[in-house]
Write a protein that binds this DNA or RNA. Structure first.
Lengths: 248, 248
DNA sequence: CCGATGCTTCGGCCCCGGCCGACACTCTTT
DNA sequence: AAAGAGTGTCGGCCGGGGCCGAAGCATCGG
C-alpha cells in the first residue's frame, strides 16, 4: 500500500537528515558523483571535523551515503543514483533562483562549467543540452508521449559500444529529463544518460576536469562530431584556449 | 547551474518542513489528493489544533501546501503534483516495509483499497495495474526505451474524450511508473495517469468511496471493459457484494 | 620508533523548535 | 443578539540536536 500516516516517523527521520545546512552542504557537494574524504567534506561544509564525523555517520546510517574506508581515509559518496535524484528534486524545488549578478572572475570560473560538467553521473551544460537536442533532431530519441529511445537510437547506442538491454533491467528509468540550470533547457538523465556519460569518458572522448567540470578531448571532438553528424565546430568549447581542430 | 553548496540553506529549510513527525503525518494524509480542513488534519496528526495551525502555516509558506479559506474553515491540499511526487519518493525510500502480519479485520478493510484507490491524483491498486498492463498489451503504451504513448494510444485517449496535447504543455512528465505497494508492480502516474483517472471519474465509470478508495460503477464495468477490450468479468471487484454483470 | 595526519569520541554549551493551554477572533447558527 | 465551532496568537516549558575543543586511536611517513 502506498505510504500512509504510519510511515510518518520514517519519513520525518529521513527528511531530518537533509534538514541541516551542514548536512545539506555535504550532500550537495557529493552530487558531483565522486567520493570525498571526511576532511574534504568538513571543509566544504564549513564545520569542525568532529562535527562532520557525526554528520557523516548519520547520513550513512540513514542510507543516504555509502562509505569506504581506506587506510586512514574515509571516503564517502551518495549511496546510489536514487539518492542523487532525490536530492536534485528537493534542491530543485527549494532553490530560490541563485544570484542574479556575478563578479567577473566568478563568471570566468563558471564558463568552463557552463560548457560541460557532470550532474551526478550524467552530462550537463551546453554540451549536455546539445547532445539532447541533436539526438532528438536525428530521431534517435523521441518525445511524442514520453522521452524514449527509437530503434535508430538503439542502433546508435550499439555503434557506440553501449549495450542498452542491461540498463532496462534496473529499476531506474532509462531516460529522464533533467533541467539544466545554465541553459534552462533539459538534458539527458536516467540510466541511459549516466551510461552514455560513462561511455564517453571511457572512450576518452571526454575527460574530467577540476571539480565537476568536463572537457572534450582532442580526440573526442571529431569522434563525437561524427557520431552526432555535426560539424566539429559546433562542439567548440567557449574559451579560445584549446581551439585546436580535428586531430584524430 | 545545478544545485551547489550555496543552495544548502534552502534545501535544509525545505527538508525541515518534512522533518517533523506531525508535519509528515499531515503531508502523508494529504497524499489522497483531497483538501482537508485544519481541524481534520489536527486529528490526523494527533496534536492540538493550535500546534497544527502553526505547522500548516509553515507548510503553506514553504510552498508545500496550498490553502483556501471558506467561511470559518481553512482547506488545505498539496500545492501541486510535484509535491506529491516528492513526498512519495521520500516516503518510498524511507518506509521500512510496513507491518508483515495484519489482523483479519484490518485485512478486510484493506481489501477495498487493494482493488482500486487513488494515489494522489492517479489510479492505483489491482485496477490501476490492470489498466497499465492492458494498455501495454494492446500496444497503446510502449516501454521499449521509456514509457510512451503510441499513436494508437493517442487515438484511444481521444476516443475517451481525453485530449493529450494540453498535457504535454505542462512541465510534468506525461507518463511515469509508480510502484504499486499492494501489487508490487507498476501502475500509471504522470500527467496522463492523472488525467485518465480524472476522466474516468468524470465519465461516472469510477466513483470515489471512503477515504482514497475508489470503485467501478455499474455503468463503468461494461464501459471500461469495452474500452479495454476485456471481458467484463476481468474487472470484477474482490468481494461478492456487487457482482452484477454488464448492464449498460 | 616517533611524529604527523586523518578521523572519532566525549563532555558541555546553547539555541532552535515542538508542544500545550489560555485567550482572542471570526463566521455560522439559533 | 447570543452561543458555539473552527482557527489563530501568545507565553512558557522542555527536550533534541548542532556546535566546538580536548583528548584518544588509528594509519602513514621517515
Amino acid at each position: 500500500m502506498h505510504p500512509t500516516v504510519t510511515d510518518a516517523p520514517a519519513l520525518a527521520q529521513l527528511a531530518a537528515l537533509l534538514a541541516d545546512t551542514s548536512r545539506a552542504r555535504i550532500c550537495l557537494a557529493l552530487l558531483d558523483g565522486r567520493a570525498w574524504t571526511a576532511g574534504e567534506l568538513a571543509r566544504a561544509a564549513g564545520v569542525a571535523p568532529s562535527t562532520t564525523s557525526d554528520h557523516l555517520s548519520r547520513l550513512v546510517e540513514g542510507g543516504l551515503l555509502a562509505e569506504e574506508r581506506q587506510g586512514r581515509h574515509r571516503y564517502l559518496r551518495l549511496a546510489d543514483p536514487d539518492v542523487a535524484q532525490l536530492i536534485e528534486d528537493l534542491a530543485g524545488r527549494a532553490a530560490p533562483v541563485a544570484q542574479p549578478a556575478r563578479s567577473l572572475r566568478a563568471a570566468r570560473a563558471t564558463t568552463a562549467l557552463a560548457y560541460a560538467r557532470t550532474c551526478y553521473d550524467h552530462l550537463a551544460g551546453r554540451l549536455g543540452v546539445l547532445l539532447h537536442d541533436t539526438l532528438l533532431d536525428r530521431a534517435l530519441l523521441d518525445r511524442a508521449g514520453g522521452l524514449t529511445l527509437t530503434p535508430a537510437g538503439l542502433d546508435w547506442c550499439a555503434d557506440l559500444g553501449l549495450p542498452v538491454a542491461p540498463l532496462r533491467a534496473s529499476r531506474r528509468p532509462l531516460l529522464r529529463d533533467c533541467l539544466d540550470w545554465t541553459e534552462r533547457r533539459p538534458h539527458l538523465s536516467g540510466a541511459l544518460g549516466a551510461a552514455l556519460c560513462a561511455r564517453l569518458l571511457d572512450l576518452g572522448w571526454l575527460a574530467r576536469g577540476t571539480g565537476r567540470a568536463v572537457r572534450l578531448t582532442p580526440a573526442g571532438v571529431p569522434a563525437l562530431a561524427a557520431a552526432l553528424g555535426l560539424p566539429p565546430a559546433d562542439l567548440a568549447p567557449p574559451a579560445t584556449t584549446d581551439a585546436g581542430g580535428g586531430r584524430a
